[in-house]
Amino acid sequence: MTESKQAPISAAGNSLKMLQAMVGIGIICALMIVLTFQGTAPIIKVKKAEALEKAIFKVLPGIDKTQTFQLGPNDSFAALEGEGQEGKVAYAGYSPNGELVGVAVEASGQGYADIIRILYGYDPEKQQVVGFYVLESKETPGLGDKIEKDAAFLANFSGLEVSLADDQSTLKNKPVTVKHGTKENPWEIDAITGATISSRAIGDIMGASTEHWAPLIHKNKEAFGLKANENTQK
């Protein structure tokens, strides 16, 4: 039994005791949290970077180094160490002999259940999307989450056409999801049967994101190659 139950003391003494107890416990707890945070923060950072790196390697086939770029003012890219500002970062990937394979870009949009976050690789030379990976989704297991692993669906993204129009600042054809089995053009994404809504969401995310990024990356494709060479030689 707690002591306070057996020996009622004066109100002032009681409040003091309560204060002491709460402050004491608060300090102990704060200490423990800070210690755990200090201990785990570097590991978590490394793990997160590793997860992102793994995703970049997945969407840009045949690369062995990556370099982060940040989109600066007046639409130019600059190499970046560490984490960049969200929504303004692109990751360039290079083949073993230092050539630019493509640029990986993050995109997100509303899915059937929640926001879907994806990463895709864009090859400015071929003007194609060359790889696709779902970073985060809460789509229905067994139906919508097929966008992550359905082989036929993922095949859409190894060579999805994102050609620029003649003015170099818009797309000739925006990528779009079509009904399963009716894909005719290289910029169309063949939907998964039974997961039409999730497939369409991916098409919409792709369309909106490539429309913004493809002209930017294409315009700056020299910047990606050059800076990377300097960096790797360092």
Binding site: K17, M18, M22
Partner: peptide, 19 residues
């Protein structure tokens, strides 16, 4: 258990659990 006054015990427990 001998240090926590009974008036604030639930608050203390929650604090400890949350930590």
């Amino acid at each position: 258990r001998n240090f926590i006054p009974k008036q604030v015990r639930i608050a203390s427990y929650i604090l400890i659990i949350a930590t």
